[in-house]
Amino acid sequence: METNAGIPIERTMKPYLIGIVLAVILTAIAFGIVATGALPRQTALVVIAALAVVQIFVHLRFFLHIDFKSTPRENLVALAFAVVLICIMVGGSLWIMFDLYHRMMV
C-alpha cells in the first residue's frame, strides 16, 4: 500500500470493486448450497469452509490491501503468528473437548 506521512493512500476504487464482486460470488455460492441442498451435508460443510477461507483472503487482499510487497513485514509476521496460534488454540481446544466428550459425555 502506498503511503505518505505514515498514512496509507487509496488511489483507486478498483480493489474494492474487484473485492465486492468476488465476495458476492463466493457468498452466493455458499448460500446457494444451503438454499438448494444440492450437496450432501459433509461435503457442503467442507465446501462452505473452503469458500470462507478464500473469501478471507479476498478481504485481506482487496479491502485490507495486504500483500507481500507493500505491507510492513512486522504486520505480516504478526498476522502469521496469530494464524498459527489460533490454529493451535482452536485445534487444541476442539481436540481436548471432543476427546472429553467421547470419554465423559461432557
Binding site: M13, G19, I20, F63
Partner: peptide, 12 residues
Amino acid sequence: LLSSTTFGIAAV
C-alpha cells in the same frame, strides 16, 4: 459487505 465497499470509497 456493501458497507465495507462504501467505506473503501470514502477512503479513496
